[in-house]
Computed example of a mutant assay.
Amino acid sequence: MRYKHFGNADVDVSELAVGTWAIGGDNYGPVDREASIEAIRRMIDNGVNLVDTAPCYGNGYSEKVVGEALAGGYRDKVLVSSKVGLVTSVNGYDRDSSFKNIMREVESSLYNLKTDHIDFYFVHWPDMNTPFAETMSALELLRKQGKIRFIGVSNFTIEMIKECQKYGKVDVQQPPFSMVDRQYVDLMKWGCERGIDSMTYGSMGAGILSGKYRATPDFPEGDTRLTFYDYFREPKFSKVQGLLKVMDAVAENHGVPVSQVALNWSCQKGYVGTSLVGVRSVAHADENCAAFEWELADDEIEQLDSELDRLGL
């Protein structure tokens, strides 16, 4: 496993992290609880030292699975990341980063995770009905109390982060980023220059960069891979298929799965701190971690970047 040093947080983090949105079972395909626990532990055994979750992933289910997976000494081996401010409601999700809600949610997350502190605590989405001063005061209080170690923001703009920094220290951020989603590169570079390192989500493009989907999949209505992402809809789906042909050639050259090409492409970017990747089985965990036993050559990265530009991805 390879590691990067996070500036503001001053910790070393594995370039691959466990993402647990899918194992929350929230419109992301079938999930096996025991297989998920085994997969998380295998990732840790392979050197991964960050597990990311959130209370809204299955209305607490994902956090509980993570808490169970980290029993038996595994908690001491990892940094735990969770989030606040996206509350399940009859409308789907409501944003609430108020002082009162943050204090309520952190206790629930600590209980679910079976831990006395959360290492990285993110505001999941900006809540424009709550002043950032109020949100940051709550987070800084939790830091002072020892319930969280580092403050993060997810899906925030540069301007929003600057406003937050007037009232406290932002340590990390969590934007979407992958070969099929490069819209926040400037944000990530800006953060990297200031020690606000990025944990990127959607790192495998909801699975499309694994090479598994060569024809339009028949996902059930409401599946997150269709509602949150656009990779499986035209015209992007056909563009991604063109990219996969180039990735196939690179993968064949190294004798590895296409997924490992996607992981290395992302993690070899200097402005990427770590890539959050979902995992559902031990075999999947081993395949993902094996990506860090080799690296893409500079000319291969240039070739892939050129193809992305040509395709307009």
Rank of each mutant, 00 (worst) to 15 (best):
I37M: 08
W125E: 05
E293A: 13
G67N: 07
E252Q: 13
S275C: 14
F292I: 12
R143G: 13
R310P: 01
D286Y: 07
Y167C: 13
A54M: 09
M199N: 11
D96I: 05
Y28L: 04
V279N: 04
V258L: 14
V11E: 12
L113H: 07
V11T: 09
T224D: 12
R233C: 00
R214Y: 08
V185P: 02
V48H: 02
Q173D: 06
S238M: 12
R2Q: 13
S203C: 08
V48D: 02
V272I: 15
A17D: 00
F99R: 15
A17N: 03
C267G: 03
G85K: 01
Y231F: 14
A297V: 12
I23Q: 10
Y231N: 12
T53W: 10
V123Q: 11
A251P: 01
V106I: 15
F156G: 02
Y121D: 02
E221R: 15
D52L: 05
A138F: 09
F232R: 05
A17T: 05
G255L: 10
D12S: 15
A35P: 02
N288I: 14
S203L: 09
L70P: 02
F219M: 08
Q173M: 15
M204I: 14
E163C: 07
A262K: 04
R194D: 09
D223M: 12
A69Y: 01
E134N: 11
S203T: 14
G152A: 10
G202Q: 10
N129P: 00
G191E: 11
E107H: 06
Q183T: 14
P131W: 08
M128K: 14
R41T: 06
N8G: 01
V172K: 05
G60R: 03
M247K: 10
V31W: 02
Y28P: 01
R194W: 10
L70W: 03
C289A: 14
A215F: 00
P55G: 03
V279S: 03
S259D: 09
P176L: 09
Y93F: 15
Y93N: 11
L226A: 01
F99I: 05
L243C: 11
S98F: 03
S14Y: 03
L79D: 00
I118C: 06
D94F: 04
S109F: 04
Q145C: 05
G207L: 06
Y231E: 06
A138R: 09
D76H: 10
Y231P: 00
R233F: 05
M136L: 12
V80E: 08
M188T: 03
G242F: 00
Y121T: 04
E163G: 00
V80Y: 02
T130A: 11
C164Y: 01
L304N: 13
H5L: 14
P257S: 10
N59D: 15
K147W: 06
K83Y: 02
V90H: 07
L139T: 08
D52V: 09
F177I: 03
Q260F: 06
G85R: 01
Q145E: 15
D248F: 04
